[in-house]
Amino acid sequence: MKADRLLIDCHVATMVEGAGAYGAIPDAAVVIADGRIAWIGPRADLPTVQAVETERLDGRWITPGLVDCHTHLVFGGDRSGEFEQRLGGATYEQIARAGGGIVSSVKATRAASEDDLFASAMSRLEGLKATGVTTVEIKSGYGLDRETELKMLRVARRIGREGGVRVRTSYLGLHAIPPEHREDRAAYVDLAVDDMLPAAHAEGLVDAVDAYCEPIAFSIQEVSRLFDKARGLGLPVKLHADQLSNGGGAALAARHRALSADHIEHATEDGVAAMAAAGVVAVLLPGAFLMLRETQAPPIDLLRRHGVRMAVATDCNPGTSPVASMTAALNLACVQLRLTPEEALAGATREAARALALLDRIGTLEVGKAAELAVWNIARPAELAYWLGKPLLHRTYR
């Protein structure tokens, strides 16, 4: 067998479902050829390999490259002032209704150039990459006009070309009502659905369509109209659902066969059952749960009982989750939401890839999949969720 690279003296957490805890292979070998995994298994079973380069990893662990399947990585400014307000007792909803929140990020994002947005996003991306991330989903939603939404998505595509990570983009035009449409929300919904989305799609800037379904954001009827438009364009959908209240978001995501329903702190059993039947992934965002000091956690036991897949992401954004560390998200998912370390790591690999419709390419370490790997200075995989702030990454391959 000819190969570009042979990795030996390592342990592998393949994260293949049904292959034991973490899909672990002790004392493993990994053969990489033409950017893909050509062979993986116990080193004792390694066939004869003619490798351009052989690398000994001194007993380190390899996992799939981590997948951050929900971020708002591209934005202007920050909202540290609102952070202080929340610590002083103001709620997220109060700040939003007073003109802060998403709308304040819109103003800063509109004022920033593409180069400025790229530079600031890259600074945050470095934190994700330093914690093993090789794939990132990036949303628009801080433009809320045609020019700026397209600008954000162009920056996201540029990050995919120049940032050393795989990028999936999501159009999030229904994120908030911009100030200029405050008195005519119907006109903004028309713009977001019938103008901005088709324009972004025509430029090849959109991989999926997202929306924020909450009383302070958009209704089920408005989101359904957007999702129908997306399906007409051949685009999958996902949803910010049931984060602040039980608004029927989980069931809405299920009706539209969404890739994922994200947040879902207030989802009911009926909503969870609908997600399970429709194959909708639950994306858990413990950073936002922490920063908003929420008290109602997502219904983890219901998700387990109904067999709903659970992904974990940072939700990196300027207002409710200024988190730029994937391993921190794993820790928070365990400590706050009570996932097991194996569930958390699966949530940042296999299930996050599933939530982006990429499981056929990444998310587990199997023959034929892309050679996107993270190599860790750890003695066991649970350490990835155990340590908070300790540098663990040796390197990534992509």
Rank of each mutant, 00 (worst) to 15 (best):
A261Y: 06
G248I: 06
L290S: 13
G363A: 15
Q94F: 00
Y188V: 03
A254Y: 00
L388V: 12
V209S: 06
E203G: 10
S325L: 05
A199C: 07
P26F: 12
A288V: 05
R5K: 14
A202P: 09
R154Y: 04
V52L: 14
R231F: 02
L239Q: 07
P179E: 09
G41L: 06
G287E: 04
A33E: 15
T327A: 08
V49S: 11
I37M: 08
K238R: 15
I40K: 02
G347D: 01
A19I: 08
D4L: 09
L356Q: 10
R255T: 01
A267C: 08
L292M: 13
A288M: 07
N331H: 15
V30D: 09
E383I: 07
Q243A: 13
G319I: 00
L332K: 03
H256G: 11
R110P: 04
L337R: 02
Q243D: 10
G35L: 13
G319L: 01
V189D: 01
A119F: 10
V103M: 03
L125R: 10
N377G: 08
A111P: 02
E114W: 00
R60I: 10
E53S: 15
R97C: 06
F218V: 01
L235T: 13
E372V: 11
V312W: 08
V67S: 02
V272Y: 02
D315M: 09
Q336E: 11
T169H: 04
D27V: 07
H263M: 08
E366N: 12
R43W: 05
S170K: 00
A211P: 00
V133W: 10
E162D: 15
D195C: 09
G287C: 05
F218R: 01
P64M: 01
R255H: 09
R146A: 04
P381R: 00
V167C: 14
I102D: 01
W376C: 04
L226E: 01
R56C: 02
D45P: 02
E265H: 11
Y92F: 14
S224D: 15
S170W: 07
L356V: 11
F83H: 14
R309F: 02
A352R: 02
E294N: 10
L144R: 01
L337E: 12
A208I: 03
L358C: 04
L388H: 13
R231G: 14
P178H: 02
A311Q: 09
Q243F: 06
I216Q: 01
E222V: 08
R56N: 07
A217P: 13
G88E: 15
E269S: 14
P215C: 05
A382M: 12
G271F: 06
V30Y: 04
A208E: 12
M152H: 03
K2F: 03
T349G: 09
G76Y: 00
S321C: 14
A370K: 05
G143A: 10
Q336W: 10
V67W: 05
L226A: 00
V209E: 09
T135W: 05
H70N: 10
A192S: 13
P215S: 08
S140P: 05
A156F: 01
V52W: 07
A251R: 15
L290N: 05
D195H: 13
E126S: 12
I62H: 05
